[in-house]
Each structure stands twice: as structure tokens, then as C-alpha cells.
Amino acid sequence: MINWAWFGLRSGRVTTPWPEDPGDDGQKGVYGMPRFHPARCEAGCSDCVSACPTGAITQSPEGRTGIDYARCISCQRCTEVCPTGAFEPSAEWAFAVRDRADLIFREAGSEPTDGPKPTPRRVPRELKRSLHIRHLDAGSCNGCESELEALLNPFYNLHRLGIFFTPSPRFADLLLVTGPVTIAMREPLLRTYEAMPEPRFVMATGTCATGGGIAGGGYACHQGLQGILPVDLWLPGCPPNPAAILDALLVLLDRRPARVQCGQLETP
């Protein structure tokens, strides 16, 4: 007969002190969103636009290239085809924003073209160290679920931060949605949201949920949560890694600053 308790104790502590204290985030070598340097763009070149499988990279009639990270699946195609290195691989995966417009690349400091920023809703103080999440899979490939499950493994150990998954929407503060929203999951999604008590928050997790990704559209899918539910936090990624999800949850709780503005990650 095995004494599992003894075996567990002997294994020692494997939980990372990150992010509250310096430590390993576990994402060594993992790619994030491609970094965009518009100054390096060559006039008349549109290789990235035709290579991008999700339409995240677009070109204006004047030939100016832009990227919407809410639609980016980090497939790295643009970094492969770009002749000048205007798109460059990076480890920038912590891409959580409160305002979706911040996922669209524009010159730093400039205002979004579609009007002033909405005022984001803040999570009340009493939820800051005790947040309960209802996860809802609205048609993901299971990549996001796999990374959400990883948050509960001893390395990330999400519970130490006072964040928990709950089976019932009645006990949930946050609805964490993955997937592009399939036609059959739309009603269950809305009903789950309705069943949640106020104040309730919504997080679009993964590029399918933030902008449709590679699965959105077609006969069976919507284009993510936009226009279906009010979203308080957007986290693109395909899938966002556990550290990115953890970072995003702490951004929502105002325990970490949102560092992405104008589609650019500010370097600390």
C-alpha cells in the first residue's frame, strides 16, 4: 500500500513564487504575439497580409499595414514571410486588455479612431482576493481548456492567489469564455450569464473568443464574444499559456497593471 501523503511531502514544493514574487513563469522559449515595427515596412509589400490565415493583418488603401491582435493566433507566418523583419517573433504573451481597442496596433499615445475609450468597470474590493470563475467552452479546440486546467497543477497553483473555479454560475463572479461561440453554444452561454449574480464580469479567453480566430465565422460559428456579451477583459492567444491567463486574471483584479496599449506591450 502506498503512502501518497508521504510521497507528496517528499516531492517538496514545486509552486513558482511568480507572479507576486520574482520567479520562473514557466514559459521559457514560448512564443507570444509577433512584434510589429511599422517603420521597417517596405512600400508596396503585402506578404504578411496574404500570409495571415485569420485576417488579423490588414492594409489600408494608402498601403499602411495594421494588425489586430484580437484576431492573431500567433502562428508566426508573418514573421516567416516578412522580408524586412517588420514582424518579429517575440515572447510577448501577456496581452490582457480591458479595452478591445488596445489590441489594435496604432502609434503609441494616439487615440483610437472609433471614439474615446470606454470607462472600464472595476472589480469590487471584496472580490480582489477571492474570485470565483465559471468557465464556459463555447467551441474551443480544447487547447484553452488544457491551459486552464494547467493553472490548477502544482506549478501555477491558482488557489494560492485566492482564485477558484466553481461549478455553479450562481456562485461565480467571472464568466471565463473560450471558443468562437458556436451556434449551439450561444443560448447556453447567454443562460449561464443570466444565471450569474451581480456584479458579474466576463473574460474573453483565447483568440477564438476575442476575435473569432481561425474557427470564427462560417456556417457554425460566431466571431467570438463581441456583440454577444459585454466583455471586461480580453486575452488573445492560441492558446494563451497558463502564465498569460494568470496575469490576465490579476489584471482584472487590479493586482497587476495592464501593460498593453495601442497594441504594444510596454517594457517594464
Binding site: 501518497w4 510521497f7 507528496g8 516531492s11 522559449g29 514560448v30 486546467e149 502544482p154 499559456n241
Partner: peptide
Amino acid sequence: LKVADAQGHWLEEQVRQINGALTGSRF
């Protein structure tokens, strides 16, 4: 089996981190 649950997922996480370091993608 709580400890075996944690241990199994910790082993999985270690291979995912090996995958990430090798290819840039945990998947």
C-alpha cells in the same frame, strides 16, 4: 487520489515546458 492527481499534472506540466522550450509552443 489528491497527491497522485497533483503529481500527474506536475509531470505533464514539466513535459509541456520541455515542449515550449523546444518549439516555442507548449502544444
